[in-house]
Amino acid sequence: MTEPLISAATLVEALEGPQPPRLLDCRARLGEPDAGRRLWIEAHLPGSYHLDLDRDLAAAPGAGGRHPLPAPEAFTAVLQRLGITPDQPVVVYDDMGGQLAAARAWWMLACWAGHPDVRLLDGGVKAWLAAGGALREDGDPDGLPAPSRWRPTYRDAALAGVDEVAATQALTVDARIRERFRGEAEPVDPVAGHIPGAVCRPSADNLDAGGHFKRAEALARELPEADALIAYCGSGVTACHNVLAYAVAGRTLPRLFVGSWSEWITDPARPVATGD
């Protein structure tokens, strides 16, 4: 796996090089399923393609939570449609410091599908503009690259299922804000609280004031430590940001509980904790 982040200045150079990366625009707004594509059509990094959180990076909501993984064959079709191969570098970006669909796309490509060269644009759209990059506003929203034939070998060892989470001694790390973790507020799911024994590491804590990832040394000091770790959040999206933070810090990656809190609470027999 390559370095997980790329700076805007380095991306400018890479796009002018002999093997420019495939750019994937992963902007999204929770609760607004059409927002990501609308944002891409309005303005996007030149040469980028839209990757949709709800349609490309998740299956339909259900017993597996609000954003369960798509079936491997469905995600393979997405990768082939976008012309992605293991020899094609990929850069994903959003406008939330990677906290929404960009980190999820990084995890699905790098950790699950095993693509060897996937990086997230550190600082996202804001960093691109600050580096002198332009946004294209006249792209063809229906244009696609030549399709690929890549069929990844998916790494299910990167996942942790709900039954394993319930029985494991691994430390579960919750990426939601502290108010949701403590059960003081729950604007999305019908039950408030957290998985008993979990620790709270809000994904926003991985970023500095400018929306870039903190330095590796700082993340290494701050991230929870244990012999075995499982990352979760509300629905397996922002948890990927924490997994990415461990990669930036050079630490062993947590496994991802994709269904996260939204799957945990589908069974009322599973315990719920509140407070710190």
Rank of each mutant, 00 (worst) to 15 (best):
R221V: 00
R221S: 12
A209M: 05
I195R: 02
L207D: 01
P147T: 06
E184W: 11
A158I: 07
T168R: 04
P152S: 10
A218Y: 02
E164G: 00
V188P: 10
A226L: 06
L219M: 05
S203A: 15
G234S: 09
G197P: 05
Y232E: 03
H212A: 12
G211F: 04
D208M: 11
Q169T: 13
L144N: 03
R201D: 00
C200V: 03
S235N: 08
N206K: 07
L171F: 05
I177Y: 13
A228V: 00
R149H: 15
N206S: 14
G183I: 06
E222A: 15
D156Q: 12
R178L: 13
A146L: 14
T172H: 05
V191E: 05
A167C: 03
A216I: 08
Y232S: 14
E225V: 12
D174V: 03
R180Q: 15
S235K: 00
R151N: 12
H212V: 03
Q169G: 13
P152I: 05
L159S: 06
R178Q: 14
R221L: 13
D156R: 07
L229C: 04
D208S: 08
V173T: 06
I177N: 15
A146H: 13
E179R: 12
L229S: 06
A166H: 10
P190R: 01
Q169R: 13
L223K: 07
P145A: 05
L207Y: 05
R136I: 00
R182L: 09
D156S: 14
A167E: 14
C233I: 06
V165M: 08
F213P: 01
R155Q: 14
L171H: 04
S148N: 10
G183Y: 12
P145N: 08
A170G: 06
P141W: 11
L135Q: 07
A220N: 08
D138H: 06
A170L: 07
A216Q: 06
D163I: 00
A146Q: 15
S148D: 10
R221N: 10
G210I: 11
L207C: 04
D163W: 01
